[in-house]
């Protein structure tokens, strides 16, 4: 006769074991690599990442603060493949260095947006009641401000600069994460394994982060990828209007804004930074769409 119920480890409830999870990941990867437009997006991102990581090592003679007033606004030549900017810097090197700022702006903003939005959304959907009502009303209010208007207002309040742009763009993306994770949490909380965990007395915090959030991860990854594109678009827009990263830091939006002043003399200074921003946003949109097709077949477009 048993005298005590053995302690129940809830991790045993989670059905897939390590190898199965890995197999699922590998299958998703293979599917993504068969998705032609997603591969194109991944290729662009690979080039940008290489530029951001290796650019400064390869072109170590470049100094963003360097000005050569004898060589401003030069047309493309074998010496300066894309010509020079209004400071006499090589435009191609500006763009290579700019990739670090623009990409990290986007990444950090999404980390803030997801870092705040995911737990709030999960709590909103899981607990329901007044917590849900409170968070949802706040989300409604934030969503009422168009993304760029909210970011502009926040930057106006915080002042320009790299850190404040990250905060402004990150905060303006929070409500999208809340919305998505809440609806996922509402679905997942009905599932037997969550109910079982609750019946066993697993603390709410542990249910949220061990069981609920991991199961909502696929759509969060899709949203985060798409939000990267949007964050870059907004951050570069702030830079373009002189409210973001300040010159002479060669952020792509800032470079485009500088080029705007020379629109009649040298259209190259507009064309190339703009193309860089466009391809970055396009790449994240393509990869995001691909991931959605692979991870979340219900939402196939």
């Amino acid at each position: 006769m048993r005298t005590s119920i053995p302690a129940f480890d809830t991790t045993e409830l989670a059905p897939p074991v390590e190898e199965e999870i890995q197999a699922v990941h590998e299958a998703a990867w293979r599917q993504l690599l068969r998705h032609r437009s997603a591969v194109a997006g991944l290729a662009v991102l690979a080039v940008y990442t290489l530029a951001a990581l290796l650019g400064p090592v390869v072109f170590n003679q470049y100094n963003p603060a360097h000005q050569d007033l004898n060589a401003v606004l030069l047309p493309p030549s074998p010496h300066h493949l894309l010509g020079t900017d209004n400071y006499g810097r090589d435009e191609l090197l500006d763009l290579v260095y700019g990739s670090r700022y623009t990409l990290s702006l986007g990444l950090l903003a999404v980390v803030i947006g997801g870092g705040v939005g995911v737990p709030l959304g999960a709590a909103s959907g899981y607990f329901g009641g007044w917590i849900d009502i409170l968070i949802q009303r706040l989300t409604d209010i934030m969503l009422a401000f168009p993304n760029i208007v909210l970011a502009l207002a926040l930057v106006a309040a915080l002042g320009p600069g790299l850190k404040n742009v990250v905060i402004a763009v990150g905060v303006s993306s929070i409500p999208n994460f809340i919305r998505l994770v809440r609806s996922e949490a509402l679905k997942v909380r009905q599932l037997p394994y969550v109910e079982a965990a609750r019946a066993l007395g697993v603390p709410s915090g542990r249910i949220l982060f061990r069981h609920l959030v991991p199961n909502a991860l696929a759509p969060v990854i899709v949203l985060a990828t798409l939000q990267m594109g949007l964050a870059i678009l907004v951050a570069a827009g702030l830079g373009f209007f002189g409210l973001g990263v300040q010159p002479p830091t060669p952020e792509w939006g800032e470079l485009l804004g500088e080029g705007h002043n020379y629109i009649f003399r040298d259209a190259n200074l507009i064309t190339f930074p703009g193309l860089c921003i466009f391809f970055a946003v396009l790449a994240f949109n393509l990869v995001g769409d691909g991931l959605r097709d692979v991870l979340d077949p219900r939402l196939r477009t």
Binding site: G229, L233, A236, G237, F240, F241, L256, G259, H260, I263, I270, T271, P273, G274, I277, F278, V281, L282, N285
Partner: peptide, 10 residues
């Protein structure tokens, strides 16, 4: 994916 400010300038 188009940055409106860039499209306008172009």
């Amino acid at each position: 994916s188009m940055p409106v400010y860039w499209l306008g300038l172009m």
